[in-house]
Design a binder for these strands. Structure first.
Lengths: 217, 217
DNA sequence: ATAAAAATCAGGCTTCTCCTGGTTGTCTCC
DNA sequence: GGAGACAACCAGGAGAAGCCTGATTTTTAT
């Protein structure tokens, strides 16, 4: 039986390219594609893949949060992060979220293929550049508790923060996560209280620094 | 004879994916790949392709500058921009540099394939989202010159934008620059209209990119 | 089992936003 | 030197969004 894979990336042409590459390997099967984190989570529920290739930066729900949610419910699924950045924050948070591998988009396809085999054998695969970062941090004795959004804010709060930082209005957020406007308002207040921030502009900057959103509009 | 294509993108796996997709079409041939703008320019000299698929954001020499250089020497080459962003500045500058098409990475491969045929017939292809932007700017009468904050916005507007991006409320801004709240509101609307932006979060990101504010809170 | 934390929502008041409109001063261009 | 364009300023008013308080249910942790 072939290995079932879901591809999550916000760019369709990248997904198509990856799919074509993956399907050249006879034992790999791409069973679904997702363009954002939320979609990825629900597709995992539905399709039960063994592996998820996950872009780190996605709209709606980022790859880190999506990974966390997927692994809470399906601890057996192997998530391989595929990212443009070697930003230590992304790497750290992604691995904390339970990813089995972290590859840079600037890698050869052969590396991805190899990574899939490795994670299925319960090993961890890191791109060379990424491994370096982790080792550097380790030898430098950098305190491994980035006391950030990921420790202060709850899951839901991070979700709401991301959507806010993407420019969504309260009602749009309410619609996106299927709760009432009032709930979103409460979350926002809670976030602002916890962070001691009082404006959307500063929240946005915070979210950018924490990697919850990017500078792109 | 097949159509000779060069792929320029700084991520190897994206290049490989594109190549695989393109080579499924019997009349297309990828003769080279480049990981930055400088390499792309020299590869065009060497390989004489008909088409260059060009990522906009690349290290060393960005896609815009590379396009300009290629077309100065080889006006017949068709450059198709492939970008993650719908940022109007990129679109505008890329088209000014002489690109024959502008596609979003979030497009289907079929779109790229179609775009290649079109540009070879001396037509221009724009992704729907991109075309919208240009039309929006046009109907709004936005001055069609490199729309950076320093040419589009007035001095007062930049001032207000900066204060907004620093987290100030409308009334705080009014107080700071000694005008009425109503005036600040008008400025804000004017800014949003000019930039085609509809939320404080996105305004903040814009201001950061333009250097009007920093990421620090 | 029990307490704490997270997630959900509502009422009612305040504030902000959005749209349309207007005035004044300055500049350029012919 | 007058017309037109633009910048900077301001207002009214409807509707949307925000803020504060308080409350219930679900989940998690001990």
């Amino acid at each position: 039986m072939s290995i079932k894979i879901i591809i999550a990336d916000d760019h369709q042409i990248v997904r198509q390219g990856l799919r074509t590459l993956l399907e050249k390997e006879p034992d790999l099967e791409v069973v679904a594609e997702a363009e954002d984190g939320r979609k990825t989570v629900s597709l995992v529920e539905e399709m039960h893949p063994q592996v998820v290739i996950m872009d780190v930066n996605m709209p709606e729900l980022n790859g880190i949060e999506a990974t966390r949610q997927i692994l809470t419910r399906h601890p057996g699924v192997k998530v391989i992060a595929l990212s443009m950045h070697t930003d230590r924050r992304f790497v750290l948070n992604m691995m904390r979220a339970g990813a089995s591998g972290y590859l840079l988009k600037d890698c050869a396809f052969e590396e991805l293929s190899q990574a899939i085999r490795l994670v299925l054998a319960n090993k961890t695969y890191l791109s060379p550049g990424v491994a370096e970062i982790i080792i550097q941090d380790y030898v430098r004795g950098i305190p491994q508790q980035a006391s950030s959004a990921f420790s202060v804010l709850t899951r839901r709060e991070r979700e709401v923060l991301q959507l806010m930082a993407e420019g969504k209005s309260t009602s749009q957020i309410a619609e996106a996560i299927h709760v009432s406007v009032k709930t979103v308002e409460t979350h926002r207040q809670q976030i602002m209280n916890k962070l001691g921030i009082r404006s959307i502009a500063e929240l946005t900057k915070y979210a950018i620094r924490e990697g919850l959103t990017s500078l792109e509009i």
